[in-house]
Amino acid sequence: MTRRFALLMTFVLTFGTGMAAYASEGGEPLIRQSWSFNGPTGTYDRAALQRGYKIYREVCSACHSMKLVYYRNLEALGYNEEQIKNIAKDYTYMDGPNDEGEMFERPGLPSDPFKSPYENDKQAAAANNAVPPDLSLIAKARPGGPDYIFSLLTGFEEHPPEGHTLLPGQHWNHYMPGHVLAMAPPLSDGQVTYEDGTPQTLEQYARDVAQFLMWAADPYMEERKRTGIKVILFLLVFAGVMYTLKKKIWADAH
């Protein structure tokens, strides 16, 4: 019985995981980091998320939109209602039409999505050679997720290796599939001021913003894992009870 069970498990797991491994091609192997949210009980580091948001707000948001994230969602980073209202009202939104039929500008509200830097994709493309991708889901949309983001942000090379030439507006990166991208190195040491004494290095910035983007892509991860542990425990107990019951019922079967 145990042997057969082991066989069955192997079968299921082979099917489940073996085939899901899709390789990412064209870039170097990513730098694997240890993240606070790894593992079945992992959680987000709130301080790192706040620092990551600061980097997004001060640097990334100049070109990249995050249309799926709302200011109200920032509560999960540990900001209170008052702070969120203050953050949102720094941005101006076009609203309307009002009762006179006019469009009007108003300060942002917690119920607004993150303000996009461009009106539309054409404008974004015209300003950047290519449309900077929306970052709401980027950590899920790239193989390697946060490791990819960290590697990409720290993996720029000023001069491409021998035999490669770059066109104007192109940049060389070790981890970008195909190595060439339109984005210039966005972060450098000391660029963003941290108030909590965290080192202001490129590595630290990249780590923080990668965590923030992971949260943005998967805001329910903590709740999901917490629920998961309860569900698995429940199933374990239930299965144990059923196994005992099965033994008991089958005792007189043969």
């Binding site: 498990m9 299921v12 797991l13 489940g16 079945p40 999901r224 894992k225 629920t227 998961g228 542990i229 569900v231 698995i232 199933l235 374990l236 299965a239």
Partner: peptide, 10 residues
């Protein structure tokens, strides 16, 4: 279901 839930939740 236990194996299925490992995938769903983790």
């Amino acid at each position: 279901l236990m194996i299925y839930c490992v995938f769903i939740f983790f």
